[in-house]
Nucleic acid binder design. Structure first.
Length: 491
RNA sequence: CGGGACGUAGCGCAGCCCGGUAGCGCACUUGCAUGGGGUGCAAGGGGUCGCUAGUUCGAAUCUAGUCGUCCCGACCA
């Protein structure tokens, strides 16, 4: 059939692309490196966004919006920051087009050159801190807890749907605090919010940790992260939260008067997750038949497929289906009734499996006679007929069970793929054959980290929070080490 | 930016080597049957073969250039 999916075993990358395209999440666009997020994919993102947005509000944050364009001079105010992003910035140089006098269509008007070029934001620290300077005078103005939902552009060489596109959607939180301790607390709090969201809504277990210097966000003192494991054994950074110290406050001269009326620079954090999470979701849970979406964020939690011969049966099933839909909606369940007569039931079964709808209810004339409905769950592919009495309650429970099962399954896989290595031979063998996270000693130097990356393509994903302190010898250099860190090949 | 592959109907592809005015599957339209795992039969509609130039009586096919996309690397969330 036209909708066949490449199997994971055959070609994992192609499998992923097939799921995104054939599951109707997104499409390639006419613009290199940019994708179109289709309605089904966007509905998924909206559910994720809404859940996160509520969590941000519940922790005292408010939303605002800052400009897409950033004056070039702003970006260069923080040295490490500009160095981190300079290589991948889109630059606006002109503000007008005109008809080509030589008849070549539309051209950029050379007379409309901007005095100062504008950078399309790769992230908004600079424009935001330039603004905060005017908003903050006193400790009474702090903390400032602002988030924005926005698009950003990073001109990537190589792109992949959702995982790495030139333009992507995200949220970026930017907070200002009176003390270092409070800023660090905020950084960790938001990391907890991310972990909570990804684990409880996306059913994807994560490891909370801190990045090494070379993996740290450009301009940060410390970068905290949550790392998830995909089914091919590669790690994926699912979210980051940065303690920015006073770096941006100093670069943009943001000072406040404390209670003792002394001037000091404010302390900052920033944190973000992006549409990349959609990619993580796809790669972590799905199978060779298509997507498997966790109920809490699935656009449709239940699909009802009627099976009938002729208008008479259809009318009877419609009546029963409408009752069922009403009672499911009463329970807050997102349900779709697919009574489209152009597609056969078998086609619909395959289609909704492709799209990862957690539960399918099949309703036929035979079922009606026996007061039954056939329910099929996407995560285990189990099918059974159950009584229509009390069905909404059972569906509600089933959705919760699926959510749990998906998390447990992913966690089991993840836990099975954290393996200690004590020799270099073992380290390389595990990376190639078992994959996943390798827990190994590291001497703490960027040189060794780089050397390991060159040899194996594996990077240090993070130093887990509350990591066990344990003396040992570095896996590569053999020098003294005080703790194990997590290595993996990563997206 | 290096390596590989590909641009022919909405999608997936064949045709190209050996030049003669385009075909298959899916999708679409109409009808009938069918309907509990990607339905069957019949009849239809749709393409300046990525673009530009050249060779030729004649180019999807040969030559040169150009644009674009995907895959694998280096870089990155």
């Amino acid at each position: 059939m036209s909708k066949e999916i490449t199997s994971r075993a055959e070609d994992y990358s192609q499998w992923y692309n097939d799921l995104v395209i054939k599951g109707q999440l997104a499409d390639y666009s006419a613009v290199r490196g940019c994708m179109v997020i289709k309605p089904y994919g966007f509905a998924l993102w909206e559910n994720m966004r809404d859940a996160l947005d509520k969590m941000f509000k519940d922790t005292g944050h408010v939303n605002a919006y800052f400009p897409l364009f950033i004056p070039k001079s702003f970006l260069s105010k923080e040295a490490a920051h500009v160095e981190g992003f300079a290589k991948e910035c889109a630059v606006v140089t002109h503000y007008r087009l005109k008809n080509d006098p030589n008849g070549g269509g539309i051209i950029v008007d050379p007379d409309a050159k901007l005095e100062e070029e504008l950078i399309v934001r790769p992230t908004s620290e600079t424009i935001i801190w330039n603004t905060y300077k005017d908003w903050i005078q006193s400790y009474r103005d702090l903390p400032l807890l602002i988030n924005q939902w926005a698009n950003v552009v990073r001109w990537e060489m190589r792109t992949r749907l959702f995982l790495r596109t030139a333009e992507f959607l995200w949220q970026e939180g930017h907070t200002a605090h009176a003390t270092k301790e409070e800023a660090i607390e905020e950084t960790k709090k938001m990391l907890d919010v991310y972990a909570d969201f990804v684990e409880n809504w996306m059913a994807l277990p994560v490891i909370k940790g801190i990045k090494t210097e070379s993996e740290r966000f450009a301009g940060a003192e410390d970068t905290y992260c949550i790392e998830a494991l995909m089914q091919d054994g590669k790690a994926l950074q699912a979210g980051t939260s940065h303690f920015l110290g006073q770096n941006f406050a100093k670069a943009f001269d943001v000072k406040f008067s404390n209670k003792e009326n002394q001037l000091d620079y404010v302390w900052a954090t920033s944190w973000g997750v992006s549409t990349r999470l959609v990619g993580a979701l796809v790669m972590a849970h799905s199978d060779d038949q298509g997507l498997i979406l966790p109920p809490r964020i699935a656009p449709w939690q239940v699909v009802i497929v009627p099976i009938y011969k002729g208008e008479e049966q259809k009318a009877m099933i419609d009546v029963k289906a409408k009752e069922l839909i009403a009672s499911l909606k009463d329970k807050g369940i997102r349900v779709k009734y697919d009574d489209n007569d152009n597609a056969r039931p078998g086609w619909k079964f395959a289609e909704y499996e492709m799209k990862g709808v957690p539960v399918r209810i099949t309703l036929g004339a035979r079922d009606l006679e026996n007061n039954l409905a056939e329910i099929a769950r996407r995560d285990t592919k189990e099918k059974k007929s159950i009584s229509m009495d009390g069905l909404p309650e059972q569906i509600s429970d089933l959705l919760e069970e699926i959510q749990q099962n998906m998390f447990n399954r992913a966690k089991h896989y993840r836990d099975e793929h954290i393996t200690p290595a004590d020799t270099w031979e073992q380290f390389e063998k595990l990376l190639d054959e078992k994959t996943g996270f390798i827990s190994a000693h590291w001497d703490g130097t960027a040189e060794t980290e780089e050397a390991i990356k060159d040899k194996t393509k594996a990077t240090i994903r993070c130093i887990p929070l509350a990591n066990k302190q344990e003396t040992g010898k570095c896996i590569l250099s053999g020098k003294d080490s005080v703790q194990r860190v997590l290595f993996a090949r990563a997206y």
